[in-house]
Design a protein around this nucleic acid. Structure first.
Lengths: 192, 192
DNA sequence: GGGTCAACCAAGCAAGCGCTAGTGTAAACG
DNA sequence: CGTTTACACTAGCGCTTGCTTGGTTGACCC
């Protein structure tokens, strides 16, 4: 058995794995395909990862951790009124699609292929991210910027946002800024 | 080679396949597992379906066709004002989760495992369904019930709705009726 | 009562799968 | 210098995969 740290080499391999997982899906991606993409032989792969599952976990962890970081950053650097905070979160979410799209698609589609331990660990990361959203939405609800059931509003918004990975091309003409503004215009009530 | 009609036997087998595809995912579901669930041997399976892919296509076709039928029905039997039509569509969408949840989950997660021909065929079905939504949303936009970019509003709403398969339990305390009302309250502007 | 036909079974093939074992090598370390 | 460490290779084991083949069964038909 070998190392399982987070060396730069491993980071790069993880990035390439994400690409393949998106193209082929986790189950259809063989260790031989992964190795070829990485420019090594299939056996060498197990020097960097304990098994195939661990590659999947690494991909998802990378993406979620980045999203969490960027979201926290956005909240720290914006005005403190509920609308600005809502906007900052939506924009941050969409911006991660620029840099980490592959990882997010994998997290979305291949979550169930994780073994229970990995799912548990990554579930906590995911929860931390969703909690950020719920706090911001709570503030918006308290300020009467949005109306409705807390649980349902949160689910609907997360749905609209998560669904973007299926159609949004960040290199198109619409910027994350545009989308964030439009989404918030749709769900907020203009009258105070 | 054998039949590929839509016998009642085949319908039942398709329903059972959907169940397994949801539990295990398409790739992890082996023909032997499918056969066992159906109470036959793995070889006999290929009497009903040309190959494994065709089972997947059958599952998705069944679900989409039902959703389309129910949505059309709902539109035919509701008031003609934009709000009522919006409500009818949302409610119909959520109600299909009661009867065809498995098929919808499969359509959502395993779409990319379809071969190009099946994807093309089912894509047209899916388009027909989404077109219904766009018509209803267009009417709502024209009546100033919703404001915003036509393309984006449609994507956000489809996102919020499609995402429901990930968290909504139709046997819970919230009815499709409740959810539909709440969603529409969130995206429509109360002031006329 | 011979013929037809959908439905099923037993057996197995060829290919591909994840992963392991054992070895080589070049740079880094003391 | 000898030792360690990181990374890679070759070769292949044991198993599972989707699917095929050839044959059996029982219900229905004229």
């Amino acid at each position: 058995m070998n190392v399982m740290n987070d060396s730069p080499r491993r980071k790069e391999l993880t990035r390439q794995a994400a690409q393949l997982f998106v193209q082929e899906g986790f189950d259809r991606t063989t260790v031989r395909m992964l190795a070829q993409e990485m420019g090594i032989k299939s056996g060498s792969l197990f020097h960097h990862f304990r098994d195939k599952q661990e590659i999947l976990a690494a991909v998802i962890e990378e993406g979620t951790q980045n999203a969490l970081m960027i979201a926290r950053d956005a909240l720290d650097n914006c005005d403190s009124n509920p609308e600005a905070r809502l906007h900052a979160m939506a924009r941050a979410h969409l911006e991660t699609l620029l840099t980490d799209r592959n990882a997010h698609v994998v997290a979305l589609y291949e979550w169930r292929r994780l073994d229970p331990e990995a799912r548990d660990h990554l579930g906590h990361l995911r929860d931390a991210y969703e909690t950020l959203w719920e706090e911001v939405l709570d503030e918006a609800l308290a300020a009467d910027l949005i109306r409705g059931d807390r649980f349902l509003v949160s689910r609907f918004v997360m749905g609209a946002l998560n669904w973007t990975v299926r159609w949004y091309d960040p290199r198109g003409e619409r910027s994350p800024e545009d989308l964030a503004r439009e989404l918030i215009a749709m769900i907020t009530h203009p009258a105070r």
